[in-house]
């Protein structure tokens, strides 16, 4: 295959990955690593490097166009960033210690979990019950609703912090945004409102990915000619996806995409165990 054709296929796949990632809220990273390794036979380290870069592009691009954060949710994000960036450093450190098949199996499990989590019914549990630690760290705020100001206070801060460390580790190890684990930490453990956890999660994904991307770059895991079509494709695809999402509800596409992710998850685990990765 010529370099031009190879790059064109990468661009097209990345465009699709970014598009579907934006529609489902799972991000393009979870698809692009399996596609690069399983379809294009790229070494998993290069795949993770290219994916991380595209994760930063998507997160920053999306935040530039619609985010309205304000100081209260920046505080929550920044506090949890301490956990995710430290986790990301640990994850990037693990990448050089752990074998490719092991990374593949962990990746497969995370894919299956993400698909399952996207199907699960979601509840908004937020409360304004004062929590001593959250009050001291100012992890609270309010947002306007048709019925007036609705205020919230974070709950179970240590559990959320711990899960965020895990999310950061997975992000650094696998080159993904690990949005599914971040949602688990913010919606489920800390009981933050959806509105807050969505903007905060997006803010955090870019910063977390930057923490491990620096290490990936200096270790030589980022191959420019691979990252080029992947980054441009995922970025363009996710921008188109975000536009479509505003206009149309897409439950059917979400279901199909979740099934694709389940299939990729099993494929990753199978190929890793069979020594084909």
């Amino acid at each position: 295959m010529s370099t031009l054709v190879f790059s064109a296929w990468l661009l097209l796949s990345s465009l699709l990955a970014g598009f579907l990632g934006a529609l489902t809220g799972l991000g393009g990273g979870v698809v692009i690593v399996p596609v690069l390794t399983l379809l294009f036979h790229v070494d998993i380290h290069y795949a993770i490097g290219a994916s991380l870069v595209s994760v930063i592009a998507t997160s920053s691009g999306a935040a530039a166009s619609y985010v309205r954060e304000g100081f209260s949710s920046v505080r929550i994000g920044m506090f949890l960033e301490v956990a995710t960036t430290l986790g990301a450093l640990f994850g990037a450190y693990l990448t050089s210690r752990v074998s490719a098949p092991t990374i593949g199996v962990i990746f497969g499990i995370v894919l299956l979990y993400s698909a399952w989590a996207s199907f699960r019914a979601k509840h908004d549990y937020h409360t304004d019950k004062p929590d001593a630690m959250a009050m001291r760290l100012k992890l609270k705020g309010s947002f306007p609703t048709p019925a007036g100001e609705d205020s919230y206070v974070a709950q179970r801060v240590p559990a959320g912090f711990g899960l965020m460390y895990l999310a950061g580790t997975l992000s650094g190890l696998l080159g993904i945004g690990s949005g599914a684990v971040k949602v688990l930490a913010m919606d489920q453990a800390m009981r933050l409102p959806f509105k807050v956890s969505t903007t905060t999660s997006n803010f955090m994904i870019g910063v977390t990915a930057a923490a491990s991307a620096g290490i990936y770059l200096s270790r030589g895991y980022i191959a420019p000619e691979l990252a080029m079509p992947v980054m441009l494709g995922v970025l363009a695809g996710s921008m188109i996806g975000a536009k479509v999402l505003v206009k149309a509800k897409v439950p059917m596409l979400r279901t199909v995409f979740s099934l694709v992710i389940v299939a990729l998850g099993f494929e990753m685990i199978y190929n890793s165990l069979a020594g084909k990765l």
Binding site: V53, I56, A57, S59, S60, G206, V207, A209, A210, A213, G214, L217, I222, P224, A227, M231
Partner: peptide, 10 residues
Amino acid sequence: GLLVLIITPI
């Protein structure tokens, strides 16, 4: 370009 991208969240 990728370096500029990594520096952006920083």
